[in-house]
Amino acid sequence: MLIINTFSITSAFAQQSLFNVPSVETTEKNKYFFQEQVDLFSKGVANTTLDYGLGQGWETGLTIPGVNFYSGDQADPMLLVNVQKGFYVNESWKVGVGTQTGYTVPFHDSSTEFATFNYWNNAFDLNDWGKYYLGVYSANKAITGNSANTNFLAGVELPFTQNVHIMADYIGGKNDIGATAIGLVWYASKKWQFSAGGQFSNDHHSKDAFQGAIVEFTFVEQ
């Protein structure tokens, strides 16, 4: 991934996303990145990402979200191709522009559905005061579950100790992806990161507003 020392919180580490919001970090040329996120208690859903660095701030790979491994949810998973370009505006402001686009996999339904999630995200590094994210996304019905939606992305990562940070993110909209997540990330080494937290739906009037506990592990090839 593209790493420079001006981004102090993640100068030695990088991650494809916070919990749900893209982090705008990109994989170094000819290196691999792997991330697995699992909702343990509520829906039993796994989300998998594998990326390859192309150089000059570009990366591409595959994302497989929505694989149900013990719930009764019959929703089809998706197979998405992801592409991202990251670049620096100045030494403390980085921008990421990307897409995750593909089709549903017809495990339960006989038909496929086109799915796309596109974003522009900004990362602002304030050194010891943390790292902050603000952006916008546009996604179609296959992603949101109801209708095409354009809304905000936001996130924050604050140092708690040298290797443990408080992390939270937000995806706007009252739809399948609209949620707030908050927890901790442990930078175990330059290659391995582990995150855990809770996720809450933006529909606060729903009895299922708490969507469950999230665990996530990340591997970055060095």
Rank of each mutant, 00 (worst) to 15 (best):
E113C: 06
V105A: 07
D128L: 12
D109Y: 12
E113L: 11
L79K: 02
G102Y: 14
V105R: 04
F87D: 01
K94C: 02
Q84G: 09
N127C: 04
V81A: 10
L126K: 09
S110P: 11
K94T: 03
Y119H: 08
E91N: 13
E91G: 11
T104N: 08
D125L: 07
V105T: 11
N127M: 04
F114S: 14
G98N: 00
V97K: 05
V95F: 09
D125K: 01
T104S: 07
A115P: 03
S110L: 08
W120R: 06
D128R: 15
W120P: 03
K94Q: 08
L126A: 15
D125P: 05
V81M: 07
V97D: 01
T104V: 02
G102Q: 01
T99R: 02
N121Y: 00
N82E: 14
G102M: 05
Q84A: 11
G98M: 02
L80W: 12
H108P: 10
T99K: 00
Q100F: 15
W120Y: 13
T112D: 04
Y119A: 04
G86C: 13
N121P: 08
H108F: 06
Y103N: 09
A115T: 12
F114Y: 15
V89I: 13
T101Y: 09
S92T: 14
K85I: 12
F124K: 02
D109K: 12
Y88Q: 04
N90S: 05
N118P: 03
S92Y: 12
V83N: 14
L126R: 12
Q100M: 08
V81H: 04
K94D: 00
P106D: 10
H108V: 01
W120I: 13
T99C: 05
T99S: 07
Y119D: 02
G98L: 04
F117P: 00
F107V: 14
N118R: 03
W93P: 10
G86E: 03
L79D: 05
T99V: 06
N118K: 03
F117L: 01
G96I: 01
F117I: 00
F114K: 15
T101G: 10
N122Y: 12
K94P: 01
W120S: 07
